[in-house]
């Protein structure tokens, strides 16, 4: 039974309901979407003993204030946004117990970009085309299926479940988002699209993450690695694909990527590295390193 949960007092700049994504509709052009940093998202649910796909909040940059309407157990992972309960700071990467009337507030990210807030049992929200994943561009998913970010006055329904023992993520699984990001790259089998010189340039360049990046793609600024071809026959795009438009600046395609595209792709980055990239702040340093499929499958 559901009665109330978390009421949104301040929604912050971009706070989205997410799960692992909307599968089975890419042939109609629906983006899979889902938590931008699946590593942090999965840990939030795991700490609470939830289903791995249970709906949770992705808080971009912070700025959220939530009123607790009933006793709740939550888990907080991802970016450190200096969260507090009634002004008392609480740590990320662990569970917390909240009482009715508590105010859960987020400051702003001092490292990382996206924090994840899960509740025990997962938010009780009806899926839209099989998923609550919010894809704002497509007006898909979210609290009412309209793809809207959270807004003031929204109430996130929480299920009535028993709490689990308090838990913390082991420190070796907690990333340091201030470190430069290294993207392990599996080179595309379509080698003819890029010259050896372009590839060499890609590996030796320290790219900066552009402020024009979003959940669709991480845009990189630095040395250009233009393809030998301007466009290709449009083809489907996997998670982490690195596409290069004719301006030569690589774009790493993330969860809200388009399903099909016609820019040549230089390869695919390791999913875990693509999750880390989603936590990189604009201006952060990003590098590429060669990798094999075996390395990418191991983790």
């Amino acid at each position: 039974m559901t009665s109330g949960g978390l009421k949104v007092i301040k929604p912050g700049p971009l706070t989205l309901l997410q799960d692992l994504g909307r599968f089975g509709y890419q042939h109609l052009g629906l983006s899979p979407g889902g938590a931008a940093d699946e590593h942090a998202f999965r840990w939030a649910n795991r700490l609470l003993g939830n289903d791995p796909n249970a709906p949770a909040l992705e808080v971009t940059l912070g700025g959220v204030c939530l009123l607790v309407e009933r006793p709740l157990q939550i888990a907080l992972t991802g970016a450190d946004q200096q969260a507090n309960v009634n002004g008392r700071p609480i740590n990320p990467w662990c569970t917390h117990t909240l009482a009715e009337g508590d105010r859960l507030q987020f400051g702003f990210s001092n490292s990382g970009v996206r924090a994840y807030l899960a509740v025990r049992g997962g938010f009780d929200v009806a899926p839209c085309f099989g998923s609550v994943a919010t894809v704002t561009r497509e007006k898909m998913g979210g609290l009412d299926g309209s793809g809207a970010p959270l807004k003031e006055g929204d109430v996130l329904p929480c299920p009535d479940t028993r709490a689990v023992f308090g838990r913390t993520v082991p420190s070796r699984f907690i990333p340091d988002y201030r470190k430069p990001v290294t993207l392990r790259l599996m080179i595309s089998e379509r080698r003819g699209w890029f010259s050896a010189a372009a590839l060499e340039r890609l590996y030796r360049t320290a790219y900066r993450l552009s402020s024009r990046s979003d959940r669709m793609g991480a845009r990189l600024e630095g040395e250009t690695v233009a393809s030998r071809v301007k466009g290709i026959v449009s083809e489907p795009i996997p998670f982490g694909a690195v596409q290069v438009p004719p301006d030569g600046l690589p774009i790493v395609l993330l969860k809200d990527r388009q399903t099909i595209g016609g820019y040549p792709k230089i390869g695919t980055v390791h999913p875990l590295d693509a999750f880390a990239l989603a936590q990189c702040q604009p201006g952060g340093t990003v590098r590429f390193a060669p990798a094999t499929l075996e390395e990418c499958q191991r983790e």
Binding site: L28, G29, L30, R137, K230, G231, P246, Q258, T259, I260
Partner: peptide, 29 residues
Amino acid sequence: FAIGFAPGFAYLGETPEALATPRLDTPRA
């Protein structure tokens, strides 16, 4: 030929050779 890129985006072909035009160097936002 396909539906993709965005919900309901239908890829249609082929245009006459005389209309073959390269994509923009930088996509519109």
